[in-house]
Nucleic acid binder design. Sequence first.
RNA 1: GUUUCUGUAGCUCAGCAGGAUAGAGCGUUCGCCUCCUAAGCGAAAGGCCGGCGGUUCGAAUCCGCCCAGGAACGCCA
Length: 588
Amino acid sequence: MKKLLECISEEVMNAFEAAGYKREAGRVSVSNRPDLCEYQCNGAMALAKEAHCAPIQIANAVVEKLQGNAVISKAEAVMPGFINMFISEEFLAKYVGEMSTADRFGMDLKAKQKIVIDYGGPNVAKALHVGHLRSAVIGESVKRILRFAGHEVIGDIHMGDWGLPMGLIMTELKERKPDLVYFDDSYTGEYPKEAPFTVAELEEIYPTASGKSKEDEDYKARAMEATFKLQSGVRGYRALWDKIIDVSVNDLKKNYEKLNVEFDLWNGESSVHDIIPAMVEDMKKGGHAYISEGALVVDVKEETDTKEVPPCMILKSDGASLYNTTDLATILDRNNKYHPDHIIYLTDKRQELYFVQVFRCARKTGLVPETTKLTHIGFGTMNGKDGKPFKTREGGVMRLEYLVRDINEEMLKKIRENKGIDSSEAEKTAEVVGLSAIKYGDLSNQASKDYIFDMDRFTSFEGNTGPYILYTIVRIKSILEKYKAQGGDMTAVKIGTKPQNETEKELMKALTGFNQMMESAVEELAPHKICAFIYDLANALNSFYHETKILTEENEAVKSQYIALIDLTKRVLETCIDLLGFSAPERM
RNA sequence: GUUUCUGUAGCUCAGCAGGAUAGAGCGUUCGCCUCCUAAGCGAAAGGCCGGCGGUUCGAAUCCGCCCAGGAACGCCA
């Protein structure tokens, strides 16, 4: 379905052409002066110089050609050369009517792509903290947006599950429970099903071990040995590692579930361990990798660089692999398995340079074809009210669990003080609304920017917040329920006649922006555009609601259109919040 | 030091393939519930769009310089 602005632009372009000017000048945008007009075209002014005449003359000529137009009800030329237009109400109603019955509200699909999203995942055996929130929330939304646009998307959490941290944990475990069968090299039987530790223990073990290794050389040596044993496949160490992964992943799943975040793949650095040697060998053979300052590197400088881009390190001088190595191997692995058209990484924006290096290295060494797009979405930090990175009151790193819990408690308080909702429903509702508060608060900002996490603001029901959006949806649901209870037939309602008043027209116009907005949200991988759109749409709905008695409208045809219109609004809003990764309750 | 991002109302943020009087929300002030959820709606006040230059008929938006803050800059991830 053509976007509304395209429909209007086409008319204006034709008019430009008919008046003897080039049609490109006819591009129309939503007016930035709603007091003067609804849509505007500034092409006449841009054209003036090459056409050697005053812009107002051009505008006048174009306006003349627009008289009696079916799409544009009124057009006028204004000094110095603006073309101000109003849309035909009949056309608008017809357009919205088509939208309401079309798939995806009439959004056209582009060629289908296969896309992998890498969430730059958390380390196993470490509690999720607020730093992991953005990757999960933004990534989930981007995934849903791309799927909505018709692409095949594979989300990979991509955990840090290999290397020294694992050795440290095992060393500390051995220290505490030396009798575990996993450490008995002569043991050949089955290993126990039960893990010899809980998540809580695991989370405490890692920092302890990490601390010890910094002070105790001998301890560190043992940890490195354990790491080596794991990586070289010693049976007991592998079995123990499996348990660590099991316990951690279980816990991670629980946490991500609360955030309504899902992954298709639970891969990690370990997944590509086996293909690293061959990859490194190829890089050497290809003449790309060479030894510099003891380490194996690939140059990734380019002539056009304005800054120093250090080489991409493949192996450390002690021969061990590092972050780069596994990321490169992962690219290779993904290419072999999925042949993706596009791989998207979500990490903190501080890793920008790192990804420039990795992407260039991957291209240079031919890990992916030229056509595979590699994108890094670098997001800003979540700060506290003081503008500094978010911390607990004690100054430590805030666990994600606690953040979610605090938001939910705050939400529950507000919901309880409002109305007599019974307590089990209130708790459920608080979770749903709380999630909207967290996610909307995050996603309504541009991903690349830092933002301030303000509990009071995010959980507020007023203003540009998640709860406000949900409230709007709940309001609509309530009317529709009543309509049905009164015997109204939802399948019979439709949109097609011109709006009765200004607020209805504004609501229609707001709805028509969906396609335009979605296209740029997909193109720019920008969930915040959806937030801005639904905020405007919710405002339009609430104004309409306030001005219009819907259920008591006596003219049945008018009432039917009202119902169809708010139903469409509800569906659009629900689709959008689903793309953001949350949902609305029945009541609140 | 080099590179890069950011700087818009008291606060939190939009707007940036250049367009007419720079927009929201919170907060402040003032209206509106016998009526579909007032968690709402309407209105007012509040701005040298960090500064200075340049390009242009026209700049918050493009370019240059400067100021302020953050970040990155080979063996962490």
